[in-house]
Simulated assay, not measured.
Amino acid sequence: MNHIQKLLFITALLTSSVAFGQITEDPDDRRGQGKDPLRTQTPEGRPLPFGQRLRFGGGITGFRFGNPFSLGVSPVIAYQASERMIVGVGGSYTYTRYKPGYIYPTQGVTINQYGARGFVMYEFIPSILANLYLHGELQTNTYQQKVDQVVAAYTGTIAAPFLGLTYMQPISRRFGVNITALYNLNYKANDPISYQVYGGSPFLLRLSFF
């Protein structure tokens, strides 16, 4: 594993460690009263300060060993806008390396992918199934492909809206484990950048922590 791969692996572990570091009990927790903690208010009904509504976390994406080797990180900052709505922004970086012989007979290929996203999550049926959210998201991704021994690099940028669902398993008021299933509304199977960035499918599955 070269230095870049080691650095990315350490960064991914640190991202997860920061996320898990938020698993703490809230001082105003209502569980002693047999109720779940409020997300935007204290038990006395006072609005929580801005900082106490923030969630920090992220996840590891595109993790593959072998040929190709791939590893990505995706930090997230989210805000509990109301008891049922979360809004947030996130970034992503994915490194992928194909050894010679996988794409070209004698040349390897390196792909760097940078992304940003904004999202809204709304808990729409809490009385039937709590912690299930409608999830809307807008992503933009820049894709750079570099072939060994070739000076020029191929670069493209693509943006797409996603729509789907997220199920959150709360661990504390400000932290949870999230499973997200989204559909790319702008996916184009015949577009090479769309194929490379989104892995040849309009569906996106994600595991994240915030």
Rank of each mutant, 00 (worst) to 15 (best):
M1C: 04
Q5A: 08
Q5H: 02
L8A: 12
L13W: 10
S16N: 13
S17I: 11
S17Y: 11
V18S: 04
F20K: 04
G21I: 08
E25P: 02
D26C: 05
D28K: 09
D29A: 06
R31I: 08
G32R: 13
G34P: 02
K35E: 13
K35I: 07
K35Q: 13
R39T: 05
R39M: 08
Q41C: 08
T42D: 10
T42Y: 12
T42V: 11
T42N: 09
T42I: 10
P43C: 10
P43W: 05
E44F: 15
G45L: 07
G45A: 08
L48R: 05
G51L: 14
L54M: 06
I60K: 08
R64S: 13
F65E: 10
F65Q: 14
G66S: 06
G66C: 10
N67A: 11
S70D: 07
G72K: 09
V73I: 15
V73K: 07
V73E: 11
A78P: 00
Q80L: 07
A81F: 10
A81W: 09
S82T: 14
S82P: 01
E83W: 01
M85D: 08
V87I: 14
V89P: 00
G91C: 00
Y93L: 02
Y93D: 02
T94P: 04
R97D: 08
R97W: 03
Y98H: 15
Y98K: 06
G101R: 09
I103D: 10
I103S: 11
T106H: 12
T106N: 14
T110P: 03
N112I: 00
Q113I: 01
Y114H: 04
Y114R: 05
G115A: 08
A116W: 09
R117K: 13
G118N: 02
F119I: 00
F119N: 00
M121G: 07
F124P: 01
F124W: 09
F124M: 11
I125W: 11
P126H: 03
P126I: 04
I128W: 08
A130W: 00
N131P: 05
L134W: 07
L134F: 13
H135Q: 02
Q139N: 14
Q139E: 14
Q139L: 12
T142Q: 13
T142E: 07
Y143H: 12
Y143Q: 08
Q144C: 11
Q149C: 01
V150E: 11
A152T: 14
Y154R: 15
T155M: 09
G156F: 02
I158C: 01
A159F: 09
P161L: 07
P161H: 06
F162K: 00
L163I: 10
G164S: 08
L165W: 04
S172E: 07
R173L: 01
V177K: 07
N178C: 03
I179Y: 12
T180F: 05
Y183T: 01
Y183F: 12
N184G: 03
Y187E: 09
A189S: 15
D191S: 14
P192E: 06
I193T: 12
I193M: 06
S194I: 06
Y195C: 02
V197W: 06
Y198N: 05
R206W: 04
L207T: 09
F209Y: 12
